Every structure is written in C-alpha cells, then in structure tokens.
Computed example of a mutant assay.
Amino acid sequence: MILVLAIALAGIGLSNIPWAKTTGLSALTLAIVLGIALGNTAFPAIAPRTGTGVDYAKDMLLRAGIVLYGLRVTFQDVMGVGLAGVVIDVIVVAGVFCAATWIGTRVLKLDRDTSMLIGAGSAICGAAAVLAAEPVIRAPAHKVSVAIATVVVFGTLGMFLYPWMYPSLGLDAHAYGVYAGSTIHEVAQVVVAGRAVSAQAAAAAVIEKMLRVMLLAPFLLMLGAWLRRGSNGAQSEAAPLTIPWFAILFVVVAGFNSLHLLPKPVVDATLMLDTLLLAMAMAALGLRTHWGSIKQAGAKPLLLAWILWVLLLGGGYLLNRAALALLA
C-alpha cells in the first residue's frame, strides 16, 4: 500500500505542474503511466511481498473512489442544462457505447471486454468510467490499461481541437460548452476546452459533463444486467446476480451532496481524498499491467477509439444542434 501511495502522490504532484495543467494530464493518467513504468521494471522483483496490497488498491480502493466521486455532482446540475442537455447526454452515452460494442466486436473483431471498456470511457467520463466498468465486465488489467490509453489520447486531442474549431461552429458560448461537455472524454479536458473560450462556456461544459458522470450509475446497473442475461437473451444460471454496490452508493452520495449539508472545506478535502484513492487504484492497475500484453492488443483498440472520437465530434455536433433547436 505504501508503494501504491507513493506512486499516486507522485502522479498528483506532477499533475500540478504548469505543463501538465496546460496539456490536461490528470493525476489519474500520470499515476497509471508511472505504475506501468515501474510494473515493467522494478515491480516484478518485489511483487511477491507487495502484491497483496497492490491488488487491494486495484479493487477496493477503486470502488471507494467511485463512491466518493458522487461528491462532484448534484441533482441541481441536471436542472442547469435543461431538457436539451439531458437528452443529449443520454443519447451520447447509449449511442457511443452501443456503437463501440458493435463496431469493436463485429467490424474490428476485437474481444468484447476491450470494446466495452473503450466504449464506456468514450461515452461517459474517460479513465474513471473505464475503471468503474472494470468490476462489472471483469476484464484483466492489461485490457483496462489499453482502454484508458486510447481514451486519454483522443480526449487530449479533442481538448485542443474544440477551442480552435469554436469560431466556425456557429454556436454561442453556452451551446459550445454543452457540446464540449457532452462529447469530450475527461472532466479535466472539458474544463480546459471550456476555459479556452470563456467562463460561460466553461460553466456550461462542466455542468453538462457532470450530468454525463451521473449517468455512470444507471449505465453500470444496466450493463451488469445485460451481461448476466448472456448473448442469446436467456438468463444465465452460471452467472451470479452482481449488483455494483459502488454504483448505487455513487448515486446516494450525489443525492446527499445535492442537499448541500456539508461545508465546502469538508467537500473539498473529501474530493482530495477521492483523487488520491483513484490515483492509487490507477497506480496499482499500472503495476499489474505488462507491456507485452498492451503490444499484443495491436492497433485495433486505437482505431476503435478514433472511430468513436469522430462519432462524438461530428455526430455529437449534429445532435447538439438538433436538440438545442427543438428542445431549448
């Protein structure tokens, strides 16, 4: 646990330097990069003595971090973007995930786990969504790492591209913020893309993004139910009923946060703890990821993530224009 904590703190520290902030590299991304670097060099020699703590961080600390992630959203956020914002996010999450699963397995011949993980990250909230989906899908560490790498690449690219496109989009600052929040992968990337235009754009982008984050819990519940039924639609007797309790508690925490009962300093301190827990989970995941497994995955996961990014970029823009015209 001390090893994982040290890597997580290093990732958090690096994320606070100006270069990392400018490029949108979050503590989670840096923690998994450091973890992979150590996991393929020094860690194998000490794995027999440290593996138990690493695996605990990868599993239980991850779930605790997802629960506390609920303090980042409130039900009032939903009201802030209106009906159009809600409809856009629901369609984006459902459409992108279904497209990822179908294109990944049917067209690119990827395994279902990798396709779903990349779909979850692209559809909802990047690395955090991939981590949250992992216990439901029960994917091995290297597939999770591959999925996280792909969504980080294209989320970062979008973070720089969206502000550059803004003058030609024909959207005001608020509409641009909704577009960015509904289609860019990571929360940190959404913040950067919004602030690059204006404070109003940043506010709308963050609210829309937080609504996507709130959809994480129902998404995980429906995904777990669908996986249990099996590919032929029949109930699988072999698969036990697994309710992702951390997804339920995520909604409970978000609901409690909506009441604004906790003082802001307490919320801020808890969010710092949440970042630390998730960074520790990322570090542990990186330690258990072997570079050979990532190389073996090949270029197809990156191609799938690119296709989904293009779908978000183009299809998301058309969806935003239509929804704002009809529902705003």
Rank of each mutant, 00 (worst) to 15 (best):
M1Q: 06
M1V: 12
V4P: 12
I7G: 07
A10Q: 05
L14H: 05
P18G: 07
A20G: 03
K21Q: 15
V33T: 05
I36T: 11
I36L: 10
A42I: 12
F43G: 01
A47W: 05
L61P: 00
I66W: 03
Y69E: 02
F75D: 06
V78H: 01
A84T: 14
G85Y: 11
V90D: 03
G95R: 08
A100R: 07
T101W: 11
T101M: 13
G104Q: 09
G104H: 04
T105M: 05
S115H: 04
M116Q: 13
M116D: 04
I118A: 06
G121T: 02
A129R: 07
A129W: 06
L131A: 13
I137S: 00
A139W: 00
K143C: 00
S145E: 01
T150Q: 09
V151P: 02
P163D: 12
P163L: 11
W164V: 15
Y166T: 05
S168L: 15
S168C: 03
A173M: 04
A173P: 00
Y176S: 01
Y179W: 11
S182C: 09
T183Y: 03
I184M: 02
H185I: 03
E186N: 06
A188N: 12
Q189T: 00
V190D: 03
A193K: 06
G194N: 04
A204K: 12
M210I: 01
L211D: 01
L211M: 15
L215I: 03
F219T: 01
L223Y: 01
L223D: 07
G224S: 11
L227Y: 06
S231F: 04
I243P: 11
W245S: 12
I248C: 15
L249W: 05
V253P: 03
F256H: 06
N257E: 06
L259D: 09
H260F: 01
V266I: 12
L276A: 09
L277M: 15
L285G: 01
G286F: 04
T289M: 00
I294N: 00
A299L: 13
L303E: 02
L304W: 03
W306M: 13
W306R: 03
I307T: 12
I307K: 04
L311Q: 14
L313K: 05
G316Y: 04
L319K: 10
L327A: 08
L327F: 11
